[in-house]
Design a protein around this nucleic acid. Sequence first.
DNA 1: TTCGGTACTTTGTTATACAAGGTATTAAAA
DNA 2: TTTTAATACCTTGTATAACAAAGTACCGAA
Lengths: 124, 124
Amino acid sequence: METNTIVENSRTQMRRGVLEYSILLVLRSGDEYASSIIQKLKDVDIIVVEGTLYPLLIRLKNLGMLSYRWEESPQGPPRKYYMITDKGREQLSELDATWQELVKSVESIRNASLLPPAGDTSNF
Amino acid sequence: METNTIVENSRTQMRRGVLEYSILLVLRSGDEYASSIIQKLKDVDIIVVEGTLYPLLIRLKNLGMLSYRWEESPQGPPRKYYMITDKGREQLSELDATWQELVKSVESIRNASLLPPAGDTSNF
DNA sequence: TTCGGTACTTTGTTATACAAGGTATTAAAA
DNA sequence: TTTTAATACCTTGTATAACAAAGTACCGAA
């Protein structure tokens, strides 16, 4: 079924749109290192891969939204635990609003599109 | 206030994620030409510009999701009215599901992040 | 001392949105 | 009849971002 490529592609774009926001949400719950962030997002069907996440974390850190600390791992090399900063929390609360507005926007055109077209020969 | 650049940037990304879906939603309500699509989306705070929309409409047409017809304008050059095809409708209904899943995903991490962190020293 | 697992990082490619500029059509003014 | 203004469609160049893939490094156990 290659038909689904179209939908799959759009789905990917939607996911991308909320990626940054999602990562900040995860970190609002508590400090995490890359692999655990990936896992948590995967659990809710938001797919991210290393090559995407690492640069993004670095970008957010450089913007002052995140900081990190090293922590020993029970097995393997040390882990870089990211945590959200005060500034990050502020911005995140704005993103919360942004998200809710977006949902409202989409829902409004979505609802409109589900109504019968109505007899409007009016708009010419 | 350059602080808002971060949030503004993320907001833009979110909008982009739903762009394609939004356009299809608008066209599910009825046939429209480019400028009217832009206006309808602007009305619900989803900003699109010509340079984005035209290539996107062409892409969707080439994918068989849309078709178009020319129609006289009361003033100025003729308008290219886009309409959604049967295939487009099918795909759109899948996108409806995709959108709802995304909302659910985000809401679930969002809700989790608003709870008190809880005393979990458990996940090591 | 090598092997397997885990973790972090970088590089090159591709897709996409957008700004900016361009072409074409129409009707009305000059 | 030429010019202007408004409307509409289209294209090109640039910047950003995600991703695949490959690379580096650490650690403990065989």
